[in-house]
Amino acid sequence: MRASRKDHEQDANEERWVTVGGALGWQAGGALHEDATSRMFTYTRAEAEIVIAATAALLRLV
């Protein structure tokens, strides 16, 4: 559950995109870290393709 000052339903459109981008960064960044949890992360080819495609789609908004 997201710790926030307000509910998701009250987020403006820009805030929603920031949330999507943050979640994608959080998901993709796990493989690069060496903490106890993240060092065990592995991604299938399909998962990697999804992260790449989602990143490319978000970059179109910039």
Score class of each variant (00 low, 15 high):
residue 51 V to S: 01
residue 17 W to R: 08
residue 50 I to T: 14
residue 44 T to W: 06
residue 29 G to A: 03
residue 50 I to G: 14
residue 3 A to Q: 14
residue 11 D to Y: 11
residue 28 A to T: 06
residue 12 A to I: 00
residue 12 A to V: 03
residue 56 A to C: 11
residue 44 T to S: 07
residue 51 V to C: 13
residue 11 D to N: 10
residue 23 A to T: 12
residue 24 L to C: 01
residue 39 R to W: 04
residue 5 R to Y: 12
residue 61 L to I: 08
residue 61 L to G: 12
residue 23 A to F: 09
residue 22 G to E: 06
residue 40 M to K: 15
residue 8 H to T: 06
residue 51 V to F: 01
residue 26 W to H: 08
residue 52 I to L: 04
residue 38 S to F: 10
residue 31 A to D: 10
residue 35 D to C: 06
residue 53 A to K: 14
residue 4 S to E: 10
residue 14 E to W: 12
residue 50 I to H: 08
residue 8 H to Q: 09
residue 25 G to L: 01
residue 60 R to Q: 15
residue 13 N to A: 12
residue 54 A to T: 15
residue 59 L to N: 01
residue 29 G to I: 02
residue 55 T to V: 09
residue 16 R to Y: 15
residue 16 R to F: 05
residue 21 G to I: 08
residue 28 A to I: 05
residue 35 D to I: 06
residue 56 A to F: 03
residue 30 G to F: 03
residue 31 A to L: 10
residue 21 G to P: 00
residue 19 T to H: 04
residue 12 A to E: 00
residue 21 G to D: 08
residue 62 V to C: 07
residue 47 E to P: 07
residue 54 A to D: 13
residue 31 A to I: 10
residue 48 A to F: 12
residue 24 L to Q: 00
residue 47 E to M: 15
residue 31 A to K: 01
residue 40 M to C: 11
residue 56 A to N: 08
residue 53 A to Q: 04
residue 53 A to D: 02
residue 53 A to H: 04
residue 25 G to P: 04
residue 2 R to W: 13
residue 19 T to I: 08
residue 49 E to R: 08
residue 47 E to G: 03
residue 37 T to Q: 12
residue 60 R to K: 13
residue 2 R to S: 11
residue 7 D to C: 07
residue 14 E to S: 03
residue 29 G to V: 07
residue 55 T to M: 11
residue 49 E to I: 01
residue 29 G to Q: 08
residue 24 L to D: 01
residue 33 H to M: 02
residue 30 G to T: 00
residue 25 G to W: 00
residue 13 N to Q: 15
residue 33 H to G: 02
residue 8 H to K: 03
residue 53 A to P: 12
residue 4 S to R: 12
residue 58 L to T: 05
residue 41 F to Y: 08
residue 37 T to C: 09
residue 3 A to H: 04
residue 60 R to P: 13
residue 50 I to N: 04
residue 2 R to Q: 10
residue 45 R to D: 15
residue 8 H to F: 10
residue 45 R to F: 13
residue 56 A to K: 13
residue 52 I to R: 06
residue 42 T to E: 10
residue 7 D to E: 13
residue 4 S to Y: 06
residue 12 A to F: 02
residue 30 G to Y: 04
residue 39 R to C: 04
residue 59 L to G: 09
residue 2 R to P: 12
residue 15 E to W: 00
residue 38 S to A: 04
residue 58 L to M: 03
residue 34 E to Q: 15
residue 25 G to C: 04
residue 21 G to Y: 06
residue 57 A to Q: 14
residue 12 A to C: 00
residue 62 V to I: 12
residue 56 A to R: 00
residue 14 E to G: 03
residue 18 V to K: 05
residue 31 A to P: 01
residue 56 A to V: 05
residue 25 G to T: 05
residue 8 H to Y: 11
residue 54 A to K: 07
residue 55 T to A: 09
residue 62 V to T: 10
residue 39 R to G: 01
residue 18 V to Q: 03
residue 60 R to I: 11
residue 19 T to G: 00
residue 47 E to R: 15
residue 33 H to R: 12
residue 40 M to V: 14
residue 47 E to L: 04
residue 6 K to H: 10
residue 45 R to K: 11
residue 61 L to C: 13
residue 23 A to P: 05
residue 49 E to F: 13
residue 35 D to R: 12
residue 31 A to M: 03
